[in-house]
Amino acid sequence: MKEIDVRQGTLALMVLKTLDVLGPLHGYGIARRIEQISEDLLAVNQGTLYPVLLKLEQEGSLASEWGVSENNRRARFYRLTRAGRKQLDAEAQSWQQTAEIIARFFAIKAQDLK
């Protein structure tokens, strides 16, 4: 299976979901989690995560503060805000719907349309 490109919006959704599940996390943690879940199928430079994090923070979906990482370094920890949770719900729902519709299209075979 080929590695696939990922659109920014999708990456943002992954970030939101990750933080929803795991709670406050630093950038590296988020990146690792996405890698693990997607099982290295995503061809994304880890660095591209940071502009996305900033964007989400500016939109008010995330909040961040300085903390200490596992190896005792200063790190920025991100957490989901209430607005972020709402956004995640909305996006998850619409994603679900889109996926269902697309799935239905693929499920339909020519003979079914008679």
Binding site: Y28, A31, N71, R73
Partner: peptide, 17 residues
């Protein structure tokens, strides 16, 4: 500066890994 620290931290963690 914030970005620099974040990148630094990120790379350190990944290197350790």
């Amino acid at each position: 500066e914030r970005l620099r620290v974040e990148i630094e931290g990120h790379l350190a963690l990944q290197t350790a890994e």
